[in-house]
């Protein structure tokens, strides 16, 4: 049974993603970290699908969905990053603390 290895890989990728999300200062790298976490989820979906086969291949379909949504999300996210960079000459997340009390 090859499931455990996939799950461990996915958990490691997810942890990496969380780590990057929390400690990276560059907006682009934070976006990449989010992508890592999404792909960790995708690995989980495919792994479970290959073990517990379903009639409609739900796991694979969901993975495709996640990829699609991730693509859209990155499109918007990068656009925001570019606009911020143009306005502030910086992509450092610590400089973006205007929305507070």
């Amino acid at each position: 049974m090859l499931l455990n290895q996939f799950l461990i890989l996915a958990a490691a990728l997810f942890a990496l993603g969380i780590y990057g999300l929390l400690v990276r200062r560059n907006l682009v790298l934070i976006l990449l970290s989010v992508e890592l976490m999404l792909n960790a989820v995708n690995i989980n979906l495919i792994a479970f699908e290959s073990v517990f086969r379903s009639e409609l291949a739900v796991g694979q379909v969901f993975a495709i969905f996640v990829i699609t949504v991730a693509a859209a999300e990155v499109g918007i996210g990068l656009a925001i990053v570019i606009m911020i960079f143009r306005n502030r000459r910086s992509a450092n997340v610590d400089d973006l603390s205007l929305l507070r009390w």
Binding site: L21, L22, V23, I30, V93, D94, L99
Partner: peptide
Amino acid sequence: KMQTGRVQ
């Protein structure tokens, strides 16, 4: 005070 504006 909790509303720091820091996303992370």
